[in-house]
Design a binder for these strands. Sequence first.
DNA 1: AGCACGCCGACT
DNA 2: GTCGGCGTGCTC
Length: 772
Amino acid sequence: MKEAKLKRPFADTVTNTEATHTQSIQSDDSRPFCIAEVAVPLDIDNTFSYLVPERLIDNIKHGVRLFVPFGRRKITAYLLGYRFAKESEPLKEILEILDDEPLWTEKDLVFLRWISGYYLHPLGKVLKAALPNGINVQSRTNAEGEGVTGGKKVLREKVFSPTEADRSAFKLKEKNQNILNFLCQNAETSQKELRKMFGECGQNLKRLVELGLIQKNEREVYRDPFAGYSVTKDSPKLLMQHQSEVLAAIIDAADSRTFSPFLLHGITGSGKTEVYLQAISHILERGDNALVLVPEISLTPLLVQRFRARFQEGIAVLHSGLSDGERYDEWRRIRRSEVRIVIGARSAIFAPLQQIGIIVVDEEHETSFKQSEGLRYNARDLSLVLGRQENAVVLLGSATPLVTSRFAAQQGKLGYLHLPLRVGSSSLPETTVITTKMTPETPISATLIQSLSDNLERGEQSLVFLNRRGFSSCLICNDCGADLQCPNCSVSLTYHRQRLKSICHYCDYQVPFPSVCHSCGSTDMKEMGVGTERVEHELRTIFPKARIARMDSDTTCGKGAHALILNKVESGEIDILVGTQMIAKGHDFPGVTLVGVLQAEGSLYLPDFRAAERTFQLLSQVIGRAGRGYLPGRVLIQAMNPGHYALETAACHDFEDFYKQELEFRQELNYPPFGFLVAIKFSATSESALIAVSESSAKLLSALKSSLMLRTEILGPAPAPIYRMRGRFRIQILLKDTNRVALRKILTAYLADRPVQSAVRETVDVDPVDLL
DNA sequence: AGCACGCCGACT
DNA sequence: GTCGGCGTGCTC
Ligand SMILES: [Zn+2]
Ligand SMILES: [Zn+2]
């Protein structure tokens, strides 16, 4: 054995899994050193200690960012705690305290530490991810860090208000008198608004200030992303029987003031939103606040409008379309308790909202609640953790709940609330499954063509759904049989006819058309597999007079393009809409009476244990698009091999049966919610590093198998030991129980022991665990 | 993340 | 000989 490493000069370095003592001991002469413990936003698990210099001791407080020397650079760091000590090892000094007010509370820190441990992500990076981007100062390498408190600019405006002075003592010009009267009768008013009412009035205001009749102040203004949307007040709607029962259960739980998580299972149009609104109203009345998480695509002005109509003021909206400045403004309003309701996409889980009484997660099954890079958190999962910490009600709402949620409800860990009825509307659509082999020449079966034709004649609208964009999913060489693949991702390139290119849907690698075979150089390439672009093309040939539109990420990349297509469908300007899963989400089309699903099993055989669940959810959603108006709906599902239970159960709307069969499948293979899953993804810079990792990971896997894992698995096509995807190599580890301590130990040991260190970067992806 | 240090192959 | 690329480890 080699001699142990040199003794490290810094003792007692705290790792971020342990709680740090943040309670400070008062400074006195016997304890002259103030030592700050700090997390940095880098790939480092331990924390660092700095000396707080004399000049900063009076300003130090919890929850602030610091500017510290780190190596030969200067970076932003996050203060975790500080203490006074008799003596100190030689430490570097903090350069600056970047915030006057705390950015996070002790409670927030508990939550963030939990996240750090659960997602195996350094605390400093978690803090960075949780804070709004506008606040962050770019680390400066040069010595002059002037203006370092920077971040996004705080906007100010001038406001005027009357003084106590005796107003009758002056004889004023008419305009001045009018302004003064106005100010006496109203709250302080900005110059901008006064200008609107009285025209250019800078001179008049200046005069009134000089006379001591009014005073000028500055106040911070917030950039308002939803300004200009007028609000018509509405009042709580009368609930149907099921809704009132559900609401009563929620209110009961809320009044217990204990952590009360619910699964609210209600099909689209069953009146979930009204239940949310009234539950939130109850929480607000008793003085607590509400956090509402919705998928990015559902976070529309229309939704915000609904909340504004009910609650008017005190609503903050956080979505990805905000500029850093706007987002920072909303964040500050929340921090200062100026709002009672926060509505946002996944990152809103980090909103600095205090006293949370209820967390609503709408469409909880949506994958967009999961962040797929950096800190790979799932806001749906975190809502449960936060709700537990805050003793809040957590409402997970969905028409097609996650298998995990459904299971937790069965176990009694989630309260199960069901809204079975469509409010004021029709029965479920009649659904037929057709067995067809889809070919590039005839992607649409004769039966579906006939139905579309009938629908056109009746003047009714149709949807055609295919979960694959592009013209053809790959090009195959007629000479040697090789398909055109992405050199980075080893997946077939999708041919896009309009753009005359073949494109990798993972990394956006492109080759122009006509293409040359990578292996033999032939230019004789055959189109294989069908995408939405081709379906649109074929439909135009079959129905030359029909008004046809396509909606997928290719046709909606422009700003407003998405809304434009939706509007056209809604106003009846479109007869047939072709699209990917995009047409399954978003708004209702009351005029649609026929839905055709092409290649329904398309997403079923992906190397993902949730493939069946995703397929079922998607199909259920698409099926639900038919017959939402007054006319009954009809659905035709085309599949090559329709025997899979995900298709069968979706077709006959048998939710119970789907969950039963899916849970059997999960249990047999120890997939969540029965097993615990962690994916380690590698990206390597060289082929040799890759091989080394492959070998060492095989060793890891066999070690895991022989120790505590009940089942370990490598995801992907055999016989490759590591699955290559999006330029990365992925192995997945499944554990039977949810013992994170054991997992962390094994992972840490593996990562430390791995042969190639920096040539390989791994990200650890923790998948759903039973958090209840 | 950067940055320095050390090891090994290639090259004026 | 030494120049430089890459792999490794450290930063209070
Ligand atoms: Zn070829
Ligand atoms: Zn690619």
